[in-house]
Design a protein around this nucleic acid. Sequence first.
DNA 1: CATAGTATCGTAAACGTTTACGGAAGCCAA
DNA 2: TTGGCTTCCGTAAACGTTTACGATACTATG
Lengths: 350, 350
Amino acid sequence: MTSRGSGEERGKMKGIRELAEHLDISIGTVSRALNGKPDVNEETRRRVLEAAESLGYVANQSGRALRKGATGVIGFMMQTGSEITGQGDTFFMSVFDGVQTVFARHKLDLVALLCSSEEDPNDYLKRVVARGFADGIILSATRRHDARFELLAKRKIPFITLGRSLTDVGQPWLDLDFEGMAEASIDRLVSRGHKHIAVTRPHDDMNLGYVFEDQCRATLARHGLRLDDRHVFRSTPNEAGGYQIARELTALENRPTAIVLINEAITVGLYRGLEEAGVRPGRDMAIIGRQSPHSQFLSPRLTSFSLSLRDLGIALAESLLATMPAFADIYEERSARLLWPMGLVPGESD
Amino acid sequence: MTSRGSGEERGKMKGIRELAEHLDISIGTVSRALNGKPDVNEETRRRVLEAAESLGYVANQSGRALRKGATGVIGFMMQTGSEITGQGDTFFMSVFDGVQTVFARHKLDLVALLCSSEEDPNDYLKRVVARGFADGIILSATRRHDARFELLAKRKIPFITLGRSLTDVGQPWLDLDFEGMAEASIDRLVSRGHKHIAVTRPHDDMNLGYVFEDQCRATLARHGLRLDDRHVFRSTPNEAGGYQIARELTALENRPTAIVLINEAITVGLYRGLEEAGVRPGRDMAIIGRQSPHSQFLSPRLTSFSLSLRDLGIALAESLLATMPAFADIYEERSARLLWPMGLVPGESD
DNA sequence: CATAGTATCGTAAACGTTTACGGAAGCCAA
DNA sequence: TTGGCTTCCGTAAACGTTTACGATACTATG
């Protein structure tokens, strides 16, 4: 039952050597034929390809990697775990999808490196790097000070970050235009008469929190307003965090009339918390947030900033390739650092 | 600026050979010391470990994999893409987290294999397998007929599936106890007087849809009721799908009084759709679903089935290890096939 | 015909490990 | 002393590729 002969139960290919013997050609020529090298007769190449196909030969990647000193793998490091889960998981999935399509074109394999909640991200990356696992790395969820940058720089591994950091080692990065979002949000709310505006940011050291709060503060100042420190709400980037924010927000004596959410995963919790306090989004409190799979299905619909995550992923991948010697010629014109614009999708919540 | 001497800017380790020379020991002994083999003096082992640490030596995995014929990598195949995004992304992240912790104990590296939305999952897996990428594979999102099972079985790659399928090649699997969920849901609703109960299922060939609908039908029959074919709603597993279901549901002339949701990501969309039709969950329509990061923050709170995703991941990993020769002795007592129970968390929606 | 050039291919040396095998000590008992 | 264990270590052969180099045959050119 286990040896179900499927007709073409071809024996195990032992390697390129056996394939060469079968063809009565030298193994060098076979390798060249397989890899599209020029020094090989087209007729023999055809024979080789054909035999490889029919015999089910596939190159052993360990041997290949050993010889070439490159693995053909790109790692995309994300974060997961109970603290974070609920965050931008769908966000990363979509970006990943875009990245994937680019690398597939170059026969590079993309894998997701998900750091367990039990392990320190730095240690995790150290392990991955030590293994020589990937030829290139994409880092996301960058922190204000991020030791991972230095680790990769020291090891001279090509990498790009989705997000900025004070730790700058000259690597390329892409980031969402949180400045633009902050500015547009504040402008919009102020123009609608709001004078007491709250903002949210992650509870931890994520870099975007600093960028966002600073820009909100600056834009408010431009309007002659100031950001009350009690109106800056830190929370875990998940529903529970949103709920908590709502509790604190509604408990304030001088309650702000509007709030801007930097994280998209807190929205449902925030809505719930507000409702329990009898505060209706869009009527009693203006809310502007980030688009997510459910933001347009909330009630009231969330006024939110959106972007094409897939396109972002494509740009990310291409910028990384531009820094890799083997592909530099193809993508050299890529800009190394880019703020990705977001567009406002009006809803019913502000 | 780029060559920032960090004090211990140790030169590149060339390999185990150089390490051996530095210690004036043979490379064989060094290897044995590093790998914890018995045939080595504890004193020399200490010296080797120390030198490796201080010189920053790490074994080249390509060489190791080539020699050992194993990569030390486990792949967890998930799905992503616009059609699916919004589905159980957080679901998979949490399961992954559990899986990760187990493999880390055995120095196995776990990576997520995310099939792009552009590529056929079968082709994708074929590529991964051909590369000899992983020593073991975890498959999720199993379909009614799933060619991936046969592919892996033919290549004799150890694997386990999170989900069942009609395609059974004797591999171990774990699956959520959808039968139990269906039964408990129907029992609960019937006992509360509902006679016209609707169910949802994925729009595509996911196996769980069949299992779930069949069991709902059977349980209803036990109560002398029948499942109206018009009360079986198929949808994409995302918010838009939930919204669509609500539209269809509320448009029916003989509207059912309750609905059971097999997918957790459709809930927000469903709520929105119902509200637009003036149907209030829990009052005008009973809803039972699956727990998700936001289900307890919806209004009304979702009555839902929950489980420990992390523990599920741990069990999944251990069951896979039990099928791998190198670890079989440690985990042999694992049961090969298991329905993972889910518990009901009462909410306000039914 | 001699020569240079080109197209094609074979040979063999890497790449960095792990491990089977055997050898050299040291120890103990007979 | 001899022989047999045990403990430790060195040697060298794999593992499956890629690729620099050189060899061969053929073509074109003078």
